[in-house]
Structure formats: C-alpha cells, structure tokens
Design a protein around this nucleic acid. Structure first.
Lengths: 213, 213
DNA sequence: CCCTGTGAACCCCTTCACAGCT
DNA sequence: AGCTGTGAAGGGGTTCACAGGG
C-alpha cells in the first residue's frame, strides 16, 4: 500500500481521469503496452507531462516496452478510488437532478446514486429512475443508512449551506456542486464546483476577445 | 473603449463571473461602493488577487471610496460579453440536453438556447420547452438562420468531431462540451470541457487521499 | 490614515534535456 | 538505439509589501 504523502499537483489529478479513459480504450482494443509518447498523444498532452504525472505516484513503466496498459489502468483506478462502488446522494430532483439520475458514465465508473432528496412534498415518496426521493428531514438517517460518501448538489440556492453542513456532520464530506452559489467548504471536506453558466460566460469572453491558440 | 490587447490569465476570467455575480447581489441590496477587501471576502479570494484581476483590464477604482458597484458590474458584463443576448444551439436532446433547455441562469445571463438538434428521428420536429428540435442534416442552415455563435454539446460520442467541424465551418466557434470524449479544437475556436464523471473521480481521489485544506 | 495599483519576490507547474537502463 | 525517470531551467499566476494619492 502506497500512502501517497507527497502532495500531487491538482492539474495532475485532473489528467488522471483522461489517462485512465484512454488506457481503458487501449485495453479494449487488446493493446498490452504503450510508450509515453503514444499515450500522451491520445490524451492530448506532452510525453514529458505524462511521465511527470505518473512519477507523482512513483509508478514504474517498463523501460523496454513502455507501460503495461492493464496494470496502469488498474493502478489509476485504485488511485482515483474508482476500483469500488461508491454511494452518492442527489440533492434536488429538478431537471438537472433527474438528468444526473439517468447519466450513464456514473455507474460504469463506480458511482452509484443510491438516494435522492427534495424539498418539494410532491416529489417526496416518488421513485425516479429506480431511486426513491426522500424528504430533507430524513437527510441524516438515510445518508447513514446507505453509507453515502458523496453528494451531488442540484437544488435551489436557498439553504444550500445549511444542507452542506448537515451532510458534513452526517459524514458526507465530498460535494459536486452545480448550484451557482458560493459554498463554504466544511473542514475535512472537498467541493468541486460546476458553474455551467460561468463556463458559458468564459466562452463568451474568449469569443469576443479573439482567440489565441 | 479599452481594447484589452494585453492577455488575461485564464483563472482571472474564471473569477470574473464570480465577481460579477457578487456585484449584482450588492447592487440589488442597494450598495453603491465596495472596497477590494469586502468584495474579495464575498467572492472567496484575497484582496490582492482581486485588485490584480481588475488591473488586467485597466479598470480604475476610486481610491477614497473603493469601487462603484453598478459601474464595475456593467464593465464586467461588457468584458464577458453578457451585456447582450447570444444565440445558443443545443446538440443532443437527451436528459442532460433537456435539463439545459429548462436551466434558469442561462437566460438571465444573456444566453438563449434558440434551437436544438438530435439524431433521433423520433425527436426531430418535436418541441421541447418551447424550442424545436431539428434534424442534424439541417445543422448549417438552421444555425446560420438563428445567428448561433455557441453550441452546447450534450449528445452521444459518435460523430462528435464531425459535428464540431461542421458547426465550425458554419461559423459556430464556441463549444460547451459535456461529452466525455476528446475534441480537437477547430482553428479560431474555443472548447470548454465539462466532464462530470471526471469531477466525481477527482472528489473520490481527494476523499481517500485525505484532505489538505 | 487607509485605500488602490503595482513592482518584485515567491511558488508551483510545465518543459527541457539527459543520465541510466535495456 | 530507444525509452523512462528526473534534476534543472523556464514561465505564468499569486502573494507580498509599499509607493502614491485622497
């Protein structure tokens, strides 16, 4: 067991997902070994970058044959924690929330949305894509019951911070936040922000600024 | 008119959206002036960061009273290009695509999804949330008809690159890509990637690595 | 005094280039 | 010969700290 105590650059973690995805495709195609140059091309980075990234984890590639595709893929899944199924809670069963429930790509990477929650009494008790919608009142109990470790925030901005804090004290420390409102990260927690409109604004900015390759 | 020819750091653009959002709230609350320290706190950055960011655009704050909230908000909207309505095309009317069609926050920031497209013959001709779904065959003509400048990619991975290239030659150079597949950016184009599953993987990574504040 | 704007230091990530191994 | 892993250099963004102005 490698306790990775030396800290890993954030951009490196981001690229890990890309590498793993490419490696999976290579594995499906029956490729056994790749050189850093090939893998880097497929992932859209430089070979130096790739080797440096892998070195963050002390991984070893075979000098003569490059990297063992399957082995490296497994290693990355283990590093990312996607080598096992993790329970996820969905907060907010609006349009975006329902899209998350039916999103392929979650299950196949080991993320299982086990439960959903909503403020709307209309929705509570109903079943969406096989997952029951619970009342916000039952947040703590249900979340513990299903051993939830990750929450997807797709609700309205009202009482968002309160919900996050409640989840955090119930043991949920990881958040994927689609709500365009600043959330104070709980101690020991981690929040990934996805502000879709902000991304469009960035596009808009570069669109009128003229583009530098 | 300040033609911002000096290049702006990418992270700065990202933070611009946050500043503008905070400024809007302040404006709604009737606040006229803010100091960099206050605005920075609300946006979750340091005051030095904020002042440096603003300096990228050569903006001036009043030394005695800080920044004029409304004026700065307007300036930022102009910089981002959100001071006018922009037509957006949606590619793929699946669950995620339909969520995009009903997403508030787009319209209020000047982004109007004017048209949708789908491969599925079932969906072509139907109207979703007020927007008609067109056949992929009509991509070029419809896109030009509606003066579309931005495309949201929420379709399957098949033929994604082809679609991007077709859009690019039809004048659509800006892409918000939800499809977890690498897209080669067309010349003069810009692609914002949103890989939701990859973000969950990042969460998972930090969750098991232990968290460093 | 206390604010903004900014040179300069600092830090972290990327890129270069090569030693070492096969 | 050719590839990996890695010191060392390079570059870009953040933070420090202060000059300058009301």
């Amino acid at each position: 067991m490698v306790m990775p105590e030396r800290k890993v650059p954030l951009p490196t973690v981001q690229r890990l997902s890309v590498y793993r995805k490419v490696l999976e495709e290579l594995h499906r195609d029956g490729v056994e070994f790749v050189y850093s140059q090939q893998l880097a091309d497929l992932a859209g980075v430089t070979s130096a970058q790739l080797r440096r990234d892998l070195a963050s984890f002390g991984s070893f590639g075979n000098i003569a044959r490059g990297y063992n595709v399957y082995q490296l893929s497994r290693t990355m899944a283990r590093l990312l924690g996607t080598d096992r199924v993790q329970s996820v809670a969905l907060i907010g069963v609006g349009d975006l929330g329902r899209a998350m429930l039916s999103y392929r790509g979650f299950e196949e990477r080991g993320f299982h949305i086990a439960v959903a929650f909503d403020l709307d009494a209309e929705k509570v008790g109903r079943v969406y894509a096989g997952r029951r919608c619970h009342a916000m009142t039952d947040l703590e109990t249900v979340v513990k019951e299903f051993s939830v470790k990750i929450a997807i925030l797709a609700c309205g901005p009202q009482r968002l911070q309160v919900t996050v804090d409640r989840l955090a004290s119930a043991g949920v420390k990881l958040f994927l936040n689609f709500v365009p409102k600043r959330v104070v990260t709980p101690p020991d927690g981690w929040v990934e922000e996805i502000d879709i409109a902000a991304r469009l604004e960035r596009l808009s900015f570069f669109g009128q600024a003229g583009v530098q390759e």
